[in-house]
Each structure stands twice: as structure tokens, then as C-alpha cells.
Write a protein that binds this DNA or RNA. Structure first.
Length: 275
DNA sequence: ATGTTTCCCTGCTTGC
DNA sequence: TGCAAGCAGGGAAACA
């Protein structure tokens, strides 16, 4: 279930293996993932050189002169760079065959996604794909802070948890990390977004940045070589304070952590520490 | 416009 | 032991 840190780790791991390489061919083993794979992926992408691998929110962009391949890993997707003759596994849906320095170094960028919540789309040069329009700021950018959250939240009655997970407000804060940030900041996920003070939004913004930054740094240290059978880093479950611990004692006060669904998502919090 | 619910899909877990 | 049901999850889309 890649959240922003996993996507950023994937980007960083991928970049040195694909940047500067040319896409020799594209193999589609099914016509769609979440959405149909557009014809440009087969017709335009082959022959293009990948100039850069970028990330926006949880989307990865493979930039070429003609445009960018836009990838989302959904919740079960993974990308690996492998020798071209690596046997297929279940759910290996797409290969980008990459030019190497010679015949022995031919590689493929292989997209595996069992649940197919991911996507592979195309963004022509000079255009911004509809999915990327209207996205909020990156949580690790200077545009994101407590004052920003405070200003955007006035008058809103939705739970602060739903507000923080809204990609138009801030991108990349998924269910796991929002639970951790709310716990660390002592804010109840049920509180109306418009009723959270400026000071507490400052704490929330700081915790979001700290937790995401820490996870990215850990991912970076874990994933040394991206050419490996297991490309996706784990979640460091032992470091999670709230997520997935419903019923267990609160790490801070010892009272049992509550669990309920908020906005159709499993939510865990401490009724004592989070107000 | 904002808030809420539904839906996509498969693998894992739980219950009978 | 096997099978069915339940759950998880990002986020777009539909709906109120």
C-alpha cells in the first residue's frame, strides 16, 4: 500500500536505473489497470528517452521529449528494474523494455499490480493531466504549514481526518500517516476541521512533515539497490503508534485505543490524548 | 460548494 | 480441510 514515502523511495530508487535510457518497446499484458492504458503508451513512448523521473503527490512521471508516462501504484502496485529475461510473476501487467549500454544490459521496468488500483496514463508535453490539476501542495514543500491548513479549514464541518486526506488540501497524506500525525499532535480525528485552532494546525503540519520525512529517510536507507526481487519497502509497523493498533493500550496513557470508521476508513485514536 | 457514500480489485484473515 | 464472508486501501465518481 504505497503511501507518499514509498512512492518517493520508488522514485529515488528507479531514477538512476532509467534516467537517460531509451524505451525500446512496451509490452502490455492487459489493456487496462484502473483505467484503459492510452494508445500513446504503445505508439508514442517507444523510442523516447527517459530524461527524468519525477513525483507529484503519489503519481510518478517518466519525462520524455514527447510527454510523460504518468503512473500511480494504487495500493498494491510496485515497479522494479530487472534483467529483460526475468520470468514473469502473476500480475506483471506492463514492461517498458529499456535500452542499455550493450546487449548484456538490456533491462525492463516492470509494473506489477495485483489489485489493479494503479494506472498508467499519458501526459503530452506542455499539458497537465486532469488528475494532476487542482492538487494541493506537497506536504514537504514550503507552501505547506499550519497557517495554510488553518486558512483552508475555516467553516468546514468535515472531520479533520477527512480534511487532511483530501488531495485538494494537501497531497500524499494517506490513512496510515494521518493517523500517526493526529496521534502525535494530540488532535481527535473526529473534530470538525473548522474547529481546530491555528496552534494545533501548526503542530499537525509539523508532525506530518516530520513523520513523512522520517519514513522517506528510512526507505532510502532500506532500499539500497532497486534491482532486487523485493522492490517495495515495508511500513516499519513497529514504529506506528496508532495505525493498526485498535484496542491496544495507548503508548502515551495506556488507555485502550479506540477504533471506528471515519469517512469509510479504519481510524484508530486515543480518546484520552486526542481532543 | 461541501459532505458522504459507493465502487473498483485481489489477497489475506476470520468464522463456520 | 474447505469455503464463504469480511476487510483493507487511494481516490474518482456519484450522490445528497
Amino acid at each position: 500500500m504505497p503511501e507518499l514515502p514509498e512512492v518517493e523511495t520508488t522514485r529515488a530508487g528507479l531514477a538512476p536505473h532509467v534516467e537517460g535510457r531509451r524505451v525500446r518497446a512496451v509490452t502490455l499484458r492487459r489493456p487496462d489497470l484502473r483505467w484503459p492504458i492510452p494508445p500513446e503508451i504503445s505508439a508514442t513512448l517507444p523510442g523516447q528517452r527517459i530524461d527524468a523521473v519525477r513525483r507529484r503527490a503519489k503519481y510518478l512521471l517518466l519525462d520524455t521529449a514527447a510527454g510523460s508516462a504518468l503512473l500511480h501504484l494504487g495500493m498494491s502496485g510496485s515497479l522494479r528494474v530487472l534483467p529483460a529475461d526475468t520470468p514473469l510473476r502473476d500480475h506483471d501487467h506492463v514492461d517498458l523494455v529499456l535500452d542499455g549500454g550493450g546487449p548484456d544490459s538490456k533491462r525492463v521496468l516492470r509494473f506489477n499490480d495485483p489489485r489493479r488500483f494503479g494506472c498508467l496514463l499519458w501526459q503530452p508535453t506542455g499539458e497537465t493531466h486532469a488528475l494532476l490539476r487542482g492538487l494541493g501542495p506537497e506536504p514537504l514543500s514550503d507552501d505547506f504549514d499550519g497557517d495554510y491548513l488553518f486558512a483552508r479549514s475555516r467553516g468546514r464541518s468535515a472531520p479533520v481526518k477527512a480534511f487532511l486526506m483530501d488531495q485538494r488540501i494537501v497531497v500524499g497524506v494517506g490513512n496510515i500517516y494521518v493517523a500517526e500525525a493526529l496521534f502525535a499532535a494530540g488532535v481527535s480525528p473526529l473534530r470538525a476541521a473548522g474547529k481546530v485552532s491555528r496552534e494545533r494546525y501548526a503542530a499537525l503540519a509539523a508532525e506530518i512533515r516530520r513523520i513523512l520525512g522520517h519514513a522517506i529517510a528510512r526507505g532510502g536507507t532500506t532500499l539500497r539497490d532497486f534491482i532486487s526481487p523485493d522492490g517495495a519497502p515495508g511500513y516499519f509497523e513497529q514504529e506506528l503508534s496508532a495505525y493498526g493498533r485498535g484496542g491496544e493500550p495507548c503508548p502515551r496513557c495506556g488507555r485502550p485505543l479506540k477504533q471506528a470508521a471515519i469517512a469509510q476508513r479504519a481510524t484508530v485514536w486515543c480518546g484520552g490524548c486526542q481532543r
